[in-house]
Amino acid sequence: MDEIKQELQSSSRATHQDYFGKALSYLCITFVGLLVLSILYFITTRGLATFTENHVSLWKFLIEKNWNPGVLDSHGQPQIGALPMIVTSFSVTVLSALVATPFALGVALFMTEIAPKRGTKVLQPVIELLVGIPSVVYGFIGLSVIVPLIRHTFGGTGFGILAGVVVLFVMVLPTITSLSIDSIKAVPMYYRSASLALGATRWQTIYKVVLRAATPGIMTAIIFGMARAFGEALAVQMVIGNAVLMPHGLLTPSSTLTSQLTTGIGNTTMGTLPNNALWSLALILLLMSLVFNILVRFIGKRGSLKK
């Protein structure tokens, strides 16, 4: 009797196990948290060095068009205008998302509204395979098929924003599609039945009811797609031409933030201005990734308020 009393009042192996397990899982999650913090910290401090150590003006960095970090201009200032890369990055991102969205919505509607069973069976693996293909393979096909195709059709080198957009379009397609599917599926069934019962055709129902209700989700999907396009490095780098020039159209070689980073980091020495300037490009990438995150959250909040 007393023995049991004793047991009930003192800690046992189970209690120790619990402390141990809790400590272990807390340790892991702390590691992940610290990792994210240190990524933010290191990239930010490195990226700011251009402005704090080399005293380049942030404004000039953002709006000047000449990128030649090793060379001084007539005023003795280093030429680090990142505008061409910023413009190119945004162009390929926006254009590829624009092109991909109709296709993504077509596939998503097919899988949810038109032929849910058969469509899912065939198209789900299609989406998964498109996600599974590595980005260098996309880059390689872009380089060996798309670039020559553009060269023959439009002349020029074939390298440039258009080639980048074609490659990125396929890469962001599965992202936008699968997230759109989720948001369309989340539209309650009775929305559709109510609309159809009122005599609307399937397309009217889709267009006026389903797509409208799913809009915040679809916007989120598009932003995730844009985030992927903005951060993609190698596939774009292989087809964009890598000339740091202000793009004059879709067909001239130019350079994105990511492509300049991948080409440049290996050719510059740590701590020098050309190197610091590249880290500033990385910082823009990091900040944009945060902006995309915030946008997604913002839309999520607004979308849930409306319902």
């Binding site: 009797m1 009393k5 009930l8 009042q9 003192s10 800690s11 046992s12 189970a14």
Partner: peptide, 14 residues
Amino acid sequence: RDMDINSPKINVYE
């Protein structure tokens, strides 16, 4: 068993 097992001192696993 003459104990308040709702007390925080009690070993719930036991």
